[in-house]
Design a protein around this nucleic acid. Structure first.
Lengths: 250, 250
DNA sequence: CAAACAATTTGACTTAAATCAACTATTTAC
DNA sequence: GTAAATAGTTGATTTAAGTCAAATTGTTTG
C-alpha cells in the first residue's frame, strides 16, 4: 500500500467530465453542499478546496492516528474507511460514494481514528478544516450545513448499528444493496443496476459476515430471481421483495 | 409511557448536590463543556440552558419524528436512545450517562430520528439549538467544541459498529462494561464497581443478543470470578482479563 | 401482605452462520 | 501467454447463539 503524498498539488482530476470543475459547477454540489449557500459563498468554499490527483485503487487517503487537518469529499470513485481493532484486525466502518464526506471522525481528538483507502480510482476534494471552520463563523448557513453533515453521519451510523444488532445475513446484505441504490438515486444514477465498488471480503467485513456467507446469500438471491449478480454488477429485479428482506423476517 | 410536557419550566432538579447549579459550577462541566471557554463565555452558555424537573424512569425526553429543537445534556441518572426499525421493533442505539449529550441526530433533517427514554430518574439540561448555534457564531471556541462533540459521537458509534460487526457475545458484554467503567472514570467514580442503569433486555437489545445470552454470559463471568454480579451491581474483579475478553478470542 | 406482574435465570433443543476444505474464476506479474 | 496470486464459489461439518419452556426472583399495587 502506497502512502499518499500530501494532497496539496493543484493538478486536476483525470476524470474527463469533471475537469477543472469548481464547486459552483460540480454536478455533485447538491449532495456535498446541499444547503442554499449564496453564489458568492459557494465561491468562498470553492477557494479553500484543493483538488488533487486521483487516488489509485488500494492507496490511502489518510491513515488512522495521523494528525487531522482536512475533511475530504469523494468526487468520483469510491473509498472505504476502516479502523484497526485492538486485536489487530481491520474493521471496515463505512463506504463513501461520490458527493459524500469522509474524515469527520478526526476532529474529536485531532487525529483520524480511521484509515481511508480507495476501492477504485477516486478523485477527491480536500477541504482544510481550519479554513472551513473560519469561513463557517462568517457564513451562518455554512455552519449549519456542517452541523447537518455531521448529524447525518451520526444518524447513518445509528442505522448501521440497528442493522448489525438485529438482522440476519440476508437482511444485512439486502440493506447494503438498498443503501447503495438509494445513494445512487441522489446522484440520478440507476437505482436497480449498478457496480459494487467493493469486494465480497469488504462487504463481509463491514456487515460482520464471512465471505462465504456473503457469497452464499448473493447466490440465493440470484436463484430466487430477486437479483441478477454478475461479478460486481448487481441488478435488482424485485425492489419491493428486497426491501421486505431488509426489514428482517421477524 | 408519559409524554414530556415541554421542558421549559424553570424549576430546579431534586438532586440534592446539584441544586440550582449553573454551568460554571457544575461538577460535570469538564465533560459536557471540555474546551477552555472563557468564564464569560461559559456564562453565556449558561444563560441559554434550561433546567427542567427530572424525568422519571420510563418517561420520554423526546420521541422520534418530533421536530428538532434542542440537544440535551444528562446531568444525573441515565437515558437510552432508540429507533423503531421498519418492522416495528425497538432498537436501542445508545446509553447516555451524566455529562453526555443526546439529540444531535435531530439536526440532519430537523426531526429526531431516535426516541430518548429515562432508564432511571434523570435530571436533564435542555440546550435550545438555535440559540447555541447563534452563540457559536460569536464564540469560535464554542463552535469548535460543538464540532468536536459531534465528531466524538461519530467515533463512538464507529466503535460500536466495529464491536457489533466482529465480536462474540462475551466480547460484546465485556466491551459494554468497560465502556461504562471508562465513562465513570471521567466522572471520578469507581471504575470497578458500579450499578448498571439498564435492564438485561436493554443490554441485549443494544448488543444484538437475546436476554438469555446476556444472562448466561454474566453468569459465566461471575463463575470465573472475573466479575461479581449482584442484580444490577457489577464489580470488575479482574480488569485486564475483561479487557482481554473484549478484544475477542481471535 | 399477598396477588399480579415483570425481570431474570437456567435447561433442552434447534438453527443460522462460522469454520474447514476443495475447487473455479479472475487478475496481476513476469 | 502462462504462472502465480488473489478473489469468489460451493460443500460438509461444527458451534455459538437463538428459541422454546419452565422455574425463580424481584417489584408493584390494591
Amino acid at each position: 500500500m502506497i502512502h499518499p503524498q500530501h494532497l496539496a498539488e493543484k493538478s486536476d482530476t483525470h476524470c474527463p467530465h469533471d475537469k477543472k470543475v469548481s464547486c459552483g459547477d460540480c454536478r455533485l454540489n447538491t449532495i456535498c453542499l446541499p444547503i442554499s449557500l449564496h453564489i458568492e459563498d459557494i465561491d468562498r468554499v470553492n477557494q479553500i478546496i484543493q483538488r488533487s490527483k486521483p487516488l489509485q485503487k488500494g492507496e490511502y487517503l489518510f491513515r488512522a492516528n495521523e494528525a487531522f487537518s482536512s475533511v475530504y469529499a469523494v468526487r468520483s470513485g469510491a473509498v472505504k474507511s476502516l479502523t484497526i481493532s485492538q486485536n489487530g484486525n481491520e474493521q471496515v466502518t463505512g463506504f463513501y460514494l461520490p458527493g459524500e464526506l469522509v474524515g469527520m471522525d478526526g476532529l474529536a481528538d485531532n487525529y483520524y481514528t480511521n484509515s481511508v483507502i480507495a476501492l477504485e480510482t477516486a478523485s477527491i476534494c480536500e477541504i482544510p478544516f481550519n479554513r472551513l471552520e473560519e469561513l463557517s463563523l462568517k457564513v451562518p448557513s455554512l455552519q449549519r450545513h456542517i452541523f447537518q453533515l455531521m448529524s447525518r453521519e451520526i444518524t447513518q451510523e445509528q442505522q448501521v448499528i440497528a442493522l448489525l444488532s438485529k438482522s440476519n445475513a440476508e437482511a444485512r446484505i439486502a440493506s447494503l444493496l438498498l443503501s447503495i441504490s438509494g445513494r445512487n438515486s441522489r446522484r440520478n444514477l440507476s437505482t436497480n443496476k449498478f457496480l459494487l465498488p467493493m469486494s465480497r471480503t469488504d462487504i463481509g467485513n463491514f456487515l460482520g459476515l464471512t465471505i462465504e456467507t456473503v457469497s452464499r446469500v448473493l447466490t440465493r438471491l440470484k436463484k430466487s430471481n430477486m437479483l441478477t449478480v454478475d461479478k460486481k454488477e448487481i441488478t435488482i429485479n424485485d425492489m419491493s421483495a428486497l426491501q421486505q428482506l431488509a426489514k428482517g423476517t421477524e
